[in-house]
């Protein structure tokens, strides 16, 4: 059994639970993943399992990946996970969404939507300046430090800059429902990234 699984974010919706309450869910299409390589403590310094996600045509692989996956199905993405029963896992073994159960707590790792170069109000939630009464620059950050001492701006000062398109983890999400036929896992709440984006579900 591996500790997590790759998935594609499909979108958000709402579903009814048995007691009639409506819960917001994110729909993820999970796995399947095939073991492509095993890492061992003796040779690599740690125990790990490398798995492939999303089969593609062989001509889409570059030479190094082709060599690495010799004799195996060509895959788009390779990712490593830990396995509880490391010794029992064999190369070529398949894992799917059945490693998850309804009601289980998971964390989801994804890449947040990129928002480009963003001002301080949107990026850090600053209040900005008043819009009227003789003020200028209603979206400016204001003062960024002191005067002659220290005569510089401290490191870590919150300013405008690239916002989004970074790795974000959402922890403690509940699996509401699993639809086996389509490999869909419904997770309560929001998950980072756009629809169609690649996310990792980790058992927590």
């Amino acid at each position: 059994m591996i500790s997590g699984m790759l998935a594609r974010k499909i979108g958000m919706s709402q579903v009814f639970q048995d007691n009639g309450t409506m819960v917001p869910v994110t729909v993820l299409q999970v796995g399947p993943m095939t073991v492509t390589q095993k890492k061992n403590k003796d040779r690599d310094g740690y125990d790990g399992v490398q798995l492939g996600f999303e089969e593609i045509a062989e001509r889409k692989l570059n030479r190094p990946t082709k060599g690495h996956l010799k004799g195996q199905t060509p895959v788009r993405i390779l990712r490593e996970f830990r396995a509880e029963d490391h010794d029992a896992v064999t190369v070529g073994q398949k894992f799917d969404h059945s490693i998850f159960n309804e009601g289980e707590l998971v964390s989801v790792v994804g890449t947040s939507k990129g928002r480009g170069f963003t001002g301080v109000m949107k990026r850090h939630g600053f209040g900005g300046q008043p819009a009227s009464h003789g003020h200028r620059g209603k979206r400016l950050p204001g003062s960024i430090g002191q005067c002659a001492f220290p005569a510089r701006v401290f490191k870590g000062r919150k300013m405008g800059g690239q916002f989004g398109n970074t790795q974000v983890t959402t922890q403690g999400l509940t699996i509401v429902k699993i639809i086996d036929n389509e490999r869909l896992v419904l997770i309560k709440g929001a998950v980072p990234g756009p629809n169609g984006g690649l996310v990792t579900i980790r058992k927590s």
């Binding site: 499909i10 979108g11 919706s13 579903v15 009814f16 869910v25 729909v27 299409q29 639809i179 036929n181 389509e182 869909l184 419904l186 629809n195 169609g196």
Partner: peptide, 13 residues
């Protein structure tokens, strides 16, 4: 992609 959303939502109807 939208087809998979239908799978989820149709079961609720």
């Amino acid at each position: 992609m939208p087809d998979l959303m239908k799978v989820v939502e149709q079961s609720q109807l």
